[in-house]
């Protein structure tokens, strides 16, 4: 029976992920409305949530068109890759004690690997479109991912050092007393920023950059293939949020004292919700940087900070070991 739980969970994640991503599109627009003193989609269904359904119907019924000048096979393959990669990432997320598909001792590396795979989707989509805007978007995406990948991984090494494991369950359990968001504050900041860049969410959506590149890598996409890209983006948002909570905000652990009042799954979901709201806030508040600014931020600021963080963490750990 217990062998069936991961399978069931996988099914729930697959279906639930898609549904949550769809609802997120509506939620994000409503939330942006709140912060921009307007309403957002409020016409269809209670609070306008029917908009999700309307959008889905619209996307489903759109002409499934492949440009005659595009590389057809790659063009169709590209959007599926991002969804698959992101979905795979969820396999190692510990939602609550025992509630995860698989607890591998290299869970963190698996997550990093999967998010890295997503870049192929964008890159191939841009390349296969055979369109100058799409190609530029794809190129930007590749450069951006390669750059931020470096210290995204490095920023997590502090967490790994402190927990002494690559297993995400072990990392969550290491935070029972103190969440890493306090001890690894530099790591958190770098990971959040790199996370935005990895999921190319605003303000780091340079591969799309509609003011410059029409719609960037998915200029030529429409209908369900476009929807797949959108799904991938929102799954990426969710995955990054889950990982931030897992790695820095104690995962399923509730706050001290009141943590035991509610089940761990609630706390996990509650924290993820807040992180997502934070991502939307970033979108509402911060304009897109220039491409060179993005690159210099990555290499000249983020990378040094990460390295300093590693050195300090290592030094402190060694010192404490020596003292202990």
């Amino acid at each position: 029976m217990s062998e069936l739980i991961p399978v069931l969970l996988a099914l729930i994640i697959l279906i639930g992920g898609v549904i949550v991503a769809a609802v997120l599109t509506w939620f994000e627009r409503r939330l942006l409305g709140v912060w921009q003193d307007r309403y957002g989609p409020n016409r269809l269904g209670p609070l306008g949530i029917g908009q999700v359904l309307a959008d889905m119907i619209k996307l489903l019924f759109k002409d499934d068109w492949v440009p005659p000048f595009a590389d057809k096979v790659v063009f169709i393959f590209a959007p599926t890759a991002i969804v698959v990669a992101m979905m795979m990432g969820f396999a190692v997320v510990p939602f609550a004690p025992g509630m995860m598909i698989i607890d591998v001792n290299i869970g963190l590396l698996f997550f990093l690997g999967m998010t890295s795979l997503a870049v192929y989707s964008v890159l191939l989509g841009g390349l296969a479109s055979n369109n100058k805007y799409a190609l530029l978007g794809g190129l930007r995406s590749a450069a951006q991912m390669v750059s931020y990948e470096v210290f995204m991984g490095l920023s997590l090494m502090g967490v790994v050092m402190m927990s002494g494991s690559f297993s995400l369950v072990a990392i969550v359990e290491a935070q029972t007393d103190l969440w890493f968001c306090f001890s690894q504050i530099l790591g958190l900041i770098v990971f959040v920023i790199a996370g935005i860049a990895e999921s190319h969410r605003l303000p780091f959506d340079l591969p799309e950059a509609e003011h410059e590149l029409t719609a960037g890598f998915h200029t030529e996409y429409g209908g369900m293939k476009f929807a797949m890209f959108m799904l991938g983006e929102y799954l990426g948002l969710m995955l990054i949020s889950c990982m931030i909570v897992t790695l820095f905000f104690g995962g399923w652990h509730g706050p001290a004292l009141i943590g035991h009042w509610l089940p761990p799954l609630f706390w996990f979901g509650f924290k993820v919700f807040f992180v997502i709201c934070f991502f939307v806030l970033l979108r509402a508040a911060i304009p897109r940087p220039r491409y060179d600014q993005l690159m210099s931020l990555g290499w000249k600021v983020m990378l040094p900070i990460t390295l300093i963080n590693l050195v300090i963490t290592g030094a402190v750990l060694l010192w404490m070991e020596g003292a202990g």
Binding site: V34, W35, Q36, D37, L281, L282, A284, A285, I286
Partner: peptide, 8 residues
């Protein structure tokens, strides 16, 4: 900026 937006 984020704070100002949040106030809205």
């Amino acid at each position: 900026t984020m704070w100002e937006v949040l106030k809205h």
